[in-house]
Design a protein around this nucleic acid. Structure first.
Length: 467
DNA sequence: AGCGCATCCGCAAGGAAGTC
DNA sequence: GACTTCCTTGCGGATGCGCT
């Protein structure tokens, strides 16, 4: 998951583009019927009529929905991680995107990612008088992803862990991010939520929590049908909407993000009322404890309340006990829920004291750990062998072409075009190893070390030219 | 009568776990 | 990292009951 430097604030690490979050461009439904290829919603903003619409193609599975929410958020996160470049382009790997979202990195999800990117590249959004730009509401028309290029290891144009992607985000989104029209987002909490539907609803609700002018909202009340439209729920029959949202509401209440969800009235006139849980400010020493709880998926409001009720010392002691239980090999279904239970436990259900793990259990755990490390090492070796074989299969010309394809994508805008012919010559003459350079570029990209990498590469090419 | 809502059921997608 | 298997879960259609 997200890397964190020690100096970073524990409170807020990520930001979401506020227009995207507030408008809910992507249907929160996990699945949609194949003929759901467009939607239009009318709503009032600052007393003016606004309209938002989306037109997609059935070929890519209709309008963006479900997991596309996660992908769109990952792209915004990666764009900011790359330093919000002016041209809106990010270069990354498919593996990195899956890691940011917190998805499993199996073939299934590479396919899901590919389908999602296709939808985000083809669906066209129009926001009439609904897009916040500066202090005005403007009309814009765009596709979420303006341009998508990627390398593929198979002939079916599929994605895999080695795929390098070059993604240009919509100018409207890029300008908005660069103008800092952002809202804070607790990405750690979001990715810890179980269901895609809950994650999408959280993103949408959290956008309602902050007014466009910046003030905090404690309660959000809306008509159920209007809310269904905002969520882009297919069946907007009130009872269906309630059922669709039920699971997500339960999870957000259980995780302490929402204090309550109530309905008032009946039929299409009924209103849904969300009450947000309080976010208290905490003293400095408590923040580290909140951060530790958050790392295990406990929401901030719950963390705050645990510290409030049981005190810092007890919470810290129980976290240590919880960690000891995990270390001993216990794998709870719901880690956050289990941790909260360990903190609250008054009956001594979890008796392993801090630092005490029975010898046999520790030996088992150590053995399991060693086994896992060994398996990971073997997997790494196999992966290297496979990559080795792929490169070895190619002749010198093929290796140079493969490397050039990857490098054009990754280095395209960082390296003046004249260097590319020099690079090709260096590969063909054998003075540079194509695989070494290409893989070095991928590594540099992932580690955000592209600038030093390109500078060094250009120096090498300059010196080769002088020879 | 018309509408809202709850329930049941089949299907398909999501997701975890194990293996290579 | 990819693939397979299997179980779980959510969706959407159908149906019937109760309230206005």
């Amino acid at each position: 998951m997200a890397q964190k430097s020690p100096n970073e604030s524990n409170e807020i690490r990520r930001f979401d583009e506020a227009n995207v979050a507030r408008l809910g461009l992507i249907s929160i439904q996990e699945r949609i019927p194949p003929d759901f290829t467009s939607w239009t919603i009318d709503f009032a903003v600052d007393g003016r009529q606004a309209r938002l619409s989306c037109v997609a193609v059935a070929e890519h599975g209709g309008v963006p929905h479900g997991l596309d929410n996660d992908v769109s958020l990952a792209l915004i996160t990666l764009y900011q991680e790359a330093g919000s470049p002016e041209d809106g382009t990010i270069v990354t790997t498919a593996y990195r995107i899956l890691s940011v979202i917190g998805w499993d990195t199996s073939g299934h999800y590479y396919q899901a990612l590919k389908e999602s990117l296709d939808r985000l590249t083809t669906a066209t959004f129009t926001a009439s008088e609904a897009w916040r730009s500066g202090k005005k509401w403007t009309t814009v028309k765009f596709r979420y992803i303006d341009r998508l290029e990627y390398t593929s290891e198979d002939d079916k144009l599929g994605l895999s862990g080695q795929s390098v992607l070059k993604i240009k985000l919509a100018r409207e989104i890029v300008e908005s991010i660069r103008a800092k029209y952002l809202k804070p987002l607790d990405l750690e909490f979001l990715t810890s939520l179980d269901r895609p539907l809950t994650r999408a609803l959280y993103r949408l609700l959290d956008a309602q929590r902050v007014a466009p002018e910046g003030g905090e909202v404690t309660q959000f009340r809306t008509n159920i049908v209007e809310w269904a439209k905002a969520c882009k729920i297919v069946d907007q029959t009130p009872s269906r909407v309630r059922r669709t949202l039920e699971g997500a509401h339960a999870e957000l209440v259980e995780r302490g993000y929402l204090a309550a969800v109530e309905y008032q009235g009946r039929g299409p006139k009924q209103e849904v009322i969300y009450t947000f849980a309080k976010q208290a400010t905490l003293p400095e020493e408590a923040r580290e404890v909140v951060a530790r709880l958050s790392r295990y998926g406990v929401s901030r409001p719950v963390a705050h309340s645990l510290i409030g009720v049981y005190g810092l010392e007890r919470v810290e002691e129980r976290i240590a006990r919880f960690e000891a239980i995990l270390l001993a090999g216990y794998a709870p279904r719901n880690r956050a829920g289990f941790l909260v239970d360990v903190v609250r436990d008054e009956e001594g259900k979890y008796s392993d004291p801090e630092g005490f793990v029975s010898r046999s259990r520790r030996m088992d755990a150590d053995a399991a750990k060693a086994k896992r490390a060994e398996a990971a090492k073997r997997a790494e070796e196999r992966k290297n062998q496979q990559a080795e074989a792929e490169w070895e299969q190619l002749d010198a010309k093929g290796r140079a072409t493969k490397a050039m394809r990857m490098l054009t994508l990754i280095l395209g805008k960082h390296v003046p075009i004249r260097y590319f012919s020099g690079l090709m010559e260096a590969f063909e003459s054998g003075r540079l190893d194509p695989r070494e350079v290409a893989e070095g570029a991928v590594r540099a990209q992932v580690q955000l070390q592209l600038v030093p990498f390109t500078q060094e590469l250009m120096q090498v090419l300059d010196s080769l030219e002088r020879e």
